[in-house]
Design a binder for these strands. Structure first.
Lengths: 194, 194
DNA sequence: ATGTGTAAGCGACACTTGTCGATTTATTTG
DNA sequence: CAAATAAATCGACAAGTGTCGCTTACACAT
């Protein structure tokens, strides 16, 4: 079964060999992305750059997309962590998350040129979703409200808005965009929290 | 250049041959999807089922994903058109769109089993986006508001919510879900329209 | 109807993909 | 330290991908 595959399985795999392999694959892909488009990169190239065997790749990820998603999720998580997002001050959190998404798109995906067509939604959105669910634990909701649905909806809204911003030729500053996103997305939560 | 490729180019291509080929490719894929997962379908199979040559496929779509997206967009557009979405009554429009997305996911993507991992966002979201932009033309916005950004954000929010609903094991009725989505997404517009 | 343009068909090509069994190398456990 | 466990390597495989140049067949305008 393909579902038995769990590349993002961070827990219970401390074997230094697998950590090293996955890290090198991500680094390799990141380096290659500065020179070529994602679609033009073969798994052979990735493993060559990583000085690993091609078969080793398939020991960790089912395909190229899975590696991209794992890499993106890791890097985005890292960017958020570096900023020390404190979930206690809930007011700034939404804007900070929006800014994080904008910054990530601008700084990483922007490397080679315009590769906005990469399947990043599968990596960034779940992370944002998780952050909202963390934050939702601190709130009491009105009875009929599903916090997870709220988190999903907000995460997709933020990513969609940030993605449009990133694809725009003459972008406004990320901070400005984050403020706009906050203004749009905040009301989603207001209908539920009390 | 890959960007020169325009498979969704509905305008100015009335040659009955290309219309026929594209239609047969979509029909073929749709039939195959009732029997196999998307990932397990090869382009050879699609063209065989469509009684077309494999090379002809590449005359119309750069890859399998592009055909899926074109097919999905066409079918979703069709479903919306059959329901006669009147954009004049703006109140019901949002709920009707949400219901349309839910219904489409449930009825089409649900054919074989659970193929929720298909890249449908690239096909449904743009259509929803376009519908919102149509509707936005009838409204006056507050000065600093970008209608396109609003449309994008709402479209992503709706799709994300509907997607979560579709992936849920024991789903509530689509109508109920559409009402929930409407409640969440409506406030996005309220901050801008006046 | 006739000619020009363009789609569709055909076969072939170099290359990539995903998988396999068998072997070597590294890590952890006793 | 040695044995057991599991990852990494290697070579090879069938199958699929995307692209060519060439030929045939169809569509539209004159």
């Amino acid at each position: 079964m393909a579902d038995a595959f769990q590349p993002g399985n961070t827990a219970e795999n401390t074997d230094p060999r697998v950590l090293r392999s996955r890290h090198m694959l991500m680094e390799s892909l990141l380096r290659l992305l500065t020179r070529k488009e994602f679609a033009d990169i073969s798994i052979q190239e990735i493993t060559d750059e990583a000085t690993l065997n091609r078969a080793t790749f398939y020991l960790h990820y089912p395909d190229k997309n899975a590696l991209l998603q794992a890499m993106t999720a890791a890097r985005f998580r890292d960017l958020i962590a570096r900023r020390g997002l404190s979930f206690t001050d809930c007011d700034g959190a939404l804007r900070a998350i929006a800014l994080g998404v904008c910054d990530y798109l601008a700084e990483t995906a922007g490397c080679p040129g315009q590769l906005a067509k990469m399947p990043l939604e599968g990596s960034i959105i779940p992370v944002v979703e998780g952050m909202f669910q963390e934050g939702a634990a601190k709130h009491t909701m009105v009875p009929g409200t599903d916090p997870k649905l709220l988190a999903t909806t907000a995460a997709w809204a933020i990513f969609g808005a940030a993605r449009r911003w990133y694809q725009t030729p003459d972008r406004i500053p990320a901070e400005e965009m984050a403020a706009k996103i906050e203004a749009m997305v905040k009301p989603i939560f207001l209908t539920a929290s009390m």
